[in-house]
Amino acid sequence: MRNPLALLLLLALSNSVQARGVYQAPDDFLAEVFAGSPPPAAVVWLRGEVKTNVADILGHNYPALRIRYWGEGKRTAWILEEIGKEKPITVGLVVEDSALQNIRVLEFRESRGWEVRHGFFTDQFSGARLTGEQELDRSIDGISGATLSVRALQKLARLALYLHSQTPHAHDSP
C-alpha cells in the first residue's frame, strides 16, 4: 500500500525538478513584436490624473514611478505586472490603433489559474478597446477556480489600453 506513496514522494524530490513559470523573456517578446529591432524605451510618468486613473483601474497604486513602453507608429508594447492570488503575473501587451492586438503571459507562478496563459483564454482580448468608463468593451468569460488570475489579466488589458492613450502614439505617428 505504501509503494505508490513512496513513488510519488520520490518523484517530488527528484533531481529532475526544474524551474517553471517563465514562458518568454520580456526582451524576446519585444523582439518578436518589433521584428527583431524594438525602438528605444520611453516612459509614462505616473503622476496627477494618470496616477489616479491607473490606481482606479488596478484597485491600487502601481508600484513604480513610471512605466516603460516601446512605441512605433500607432503601436505600443508594454510589459506589466499584477498580482493574481499571491504572485505577480508578468504580461506582455501590444496596443495598436487603441485596440489590444496581443496579450501574452510571460511569467506565471501561481499554483492555480494556469489556464490564463493559454490562447484559448487570451484570444478573448484580441481587438478589445476601452469604453468611456475605462472598462473593456466586451465581456471576458472567466475560469472557475482562477477568478483572481482572470481578474489580473483583465486589469492589465485595461491598463495597457489606458496608458497607450497617454502616449503620442495614440494620436499620430510621432
Binding site: 510519488l8 517530488a12 527528484s14 526544474q18 524551474a19 513559470g21 499554483s111 492555480r112 472557475s144 477568478t147
Partner: peptide
C-alpha cells in the same frame, strides 16, 4: 514543480473533488 506542466505535492491538502472543496 517537476516541469512546466507537472507538479507534485506532499503534506496536508484539499482533495480534488467537487466545485467548492478547493475554492
Amino acid at each position: 514543480d517537476i516541469n512546466e506542466n507537472l507538479q507534485a505535492r506532499g503534506g496536508v491538502f484539499l482533495l480534488p473533488v467537487g466545485i467548492l472543496n478547493e475554492t
